[in-house]
Nucleic acid binder design. Structure first.
Lengths: 338, 338
DNA sequence: ACAGTGCATGTTAACGATAACATAAACAGA
DNA sequence: TCTGTTTATGTTATCGTTAACATGCACTGT
């Protein structure tokens, strides 16, 4: 550690290279017109001084931060991680950096996060879900930057939307089971509505069962979001004890579905022989579990990729009206259901 | 969407509230001395105007960004997610925000990321692992901010360190197996050294086996990091075909270990009856799989928590010398090994 | 030979907050 | 009552970069 002397600025680099600060500034942008000789001299001078470009000053003067704010419910979730990955991949080439935050499935926390985000003056903001506190919604509406809601298809979007109907996706699963002749179908999910997508899936289950004229009351609610494997196992235990004649279970996610599957294994319940199990999300575990889990792939990576494309289109003026991009989740029927 | 007029500044708020901009600035800091009446008037004025505090200006003038830069190999990894969670929990109260980036287990990418980070002038930087490109190392050394390397205990740290020896952790596992009377032990890992922690674990395996006077050549290398469940399964298939007399397998992570377990289930190989399987990381799946997987818990959350504490100590001047904090991973013996 | 064009570089001021210093009023203690 | 301290607020200059405009020189075509 050397003595903490003030770090060099562009002015220092300019002095050493014998040019004006403005030319140094230009030399650091790839596109600007600076002669090769001058640029080389400047980069050398910068290197000699250990100069590090200061974004904070650049951000203020140019009124650009190159930040894209992204809010997800949890960092510890492979689905959302995939969306972020798709986003950052699509934005990296343009020098846009992701400012990531998570809400723990809490709308009040989301509101706080959005406020923090907007102070940093991002170029655009991507949020998960279509439900927000009134204040959060107002902040987003007035932010003056592109807003993209994902993982949902809200009725009254704030700006752009890229997502799908969680309810419809689960309806497809229910209809598939019914077409296979099953009638006693249960749903395992969380015991709060904090996870709004999880709540939508449960609502979709109930609506679909009722539409089929079936009993929609086989609901097991366990734990706060995100529902873990362990909670899925616990819920399955409860289900087997209270409603042993259940023929199939739809779980709010693959993680709880896998937990449910392990509980069956521990209790010697044959899946799919005695009971079918399905999840949601097409996590890696769904494909590799024995038996492999029937699930729904909502193409999380695509959500991110499309969001990145949309952001670039909006920033470049190619997209002038709010976009509504529907993703069509795919039902993946595997060994855990027949 | 209203007409895009320039967003209001503190000066606008000050005018409306009938005070000076400086007083507005003070009103937005919790600690400063502003009379209640004045603060209320200012906050009301700010609200009426839809004023949003501009961090970019604040960052420049105060030379503080309240960013803590954090580099992890992958966002899609529960272990690193836990570390980030510990970090952000510990930093949130102080208003420090995490600037997160991932390297895809690529040191060149890490170098690029660190460069991007430093331009943003973070208050401190947390990196994963103790190995970096020479330039990355130089940048960190000269950054003039606290540097914390995690998930490793390098010989020659750049600054602070919070971690453990991956090699020693695996040695403990090997020694445990040998104490149980096993001799033919294999290791499943990636086929590159990009994942330096994975490489360290394999090196630890080899060293431990050799120290025990045992054959250390039962190595299956498959795929680039991070090794997936699927690749674990593939590796197990190869192992069962080429070295069928293997008694135990240590996998570079719980995910590959679980994949390996499923391959045994598909092939009718009894675990632990015919073969023992162990993983690394104590992911949730290790505890809930049937049989539950023996693994090593490196306390990823603690790494983050301790890092957050350390950062606050350094920023507050309570920690003046480089810290070296050792974490002691715990061997969790479960049903998959005996 | 000369206006016209483009290229490389320079000059000036500004982005919006706040550190540092200054000041007026209120209050406390002897 | 008077000085010393605290509290609430104001003034000025500045953080480091870059937008906007200006300038000089080289080259092009006629």
């Amino acid at each position: 550690m050397s003595i903490t002397r003030k770090s060099p600025t562009m002015a220092d680099v300019a002095r050493l290279a014998g040019v004006s600060p403005m030319t140094v500034s230009r030399a650091f942008k790839t596109d600007s017109s600076v002669s090769d000789a001058t640029r080389d001299a400047i980069l050398k001078a910068a290197d000699d001084l250990g100069y590090v470009f200061d974004s904070t000053a650049s951000n203020l003067r140019s009124q650009k931060t190159d930040f894209i704010a992204v809010s997800i419910p949890s960092i510890n979730n492979a689905n959302f991680a995939e969306t972020v990955r798709g986003l950052s991949e699509g934005l990296k080439a343009r020098g846009l950096q992701i400012l990531l935050g998570y809400t723990d499935y809490d709308m009040a926390e989301e509101e706080r996060l959005i406020e923090q985000f907007l102070r940093r003056r991002p170029e655009a903001i991507v949020v998960t879900g279509g439900r927000h506190t009134p204040r959060a919604r107002r902040m987003l509406e007035n932010a003056g930057i592109p807003v993209i809601e994902t993982w949902d298809l809200p009725e009254d979007p704030i700006g752009h939307v890229i997502g799908f109907s969680n309810a419809d996706a689960v309806r497809g699963m229910v209809d598939h089971f019914v077409a296979q002749g099953l009638t006693r179908i249960a749903f395992i999910g969380g015991d709060t509505t904090r996870d709004t997508r999880g709540a939508d899936r449960r609502a979709g289950f109930i609506a679909a069962m009722q539409a089929q004229g079936l009993d929609a009351t086989r609901l097991v609610a366990v734990g706060a979001p995100p529902i873990s494997m362990r909670e899925g196992a616990e819920a399955m235990g409860r289900l087997l004890e209270t409603l042993p004649d259940t023929q199939a279970v739809i779980c709010v996610s693959d993680l709880s579905a896998f937990g449910a599957l392990t509980e069956c294994q521990r209790r010697g319940v044959d899946v799919p022989g005695s009971l079918w199990i399905a999840g949601f999300g097409d996590y890696e575990i769904a494909g590799i579990a024995v038996p492999a889990l029937t699930t729904i792939n909502p193409f999380p990576r695509d959500i991110g990729t499309r969001a990145a494309e949309l952001i670039l289109d909006v920033l470049d003026g190619r997209q002038l009206t709010p976009a509504r991009i529907a993703i069509f989740p795919e039902l993946l029927v595997r060994h855990s259901t027949g």
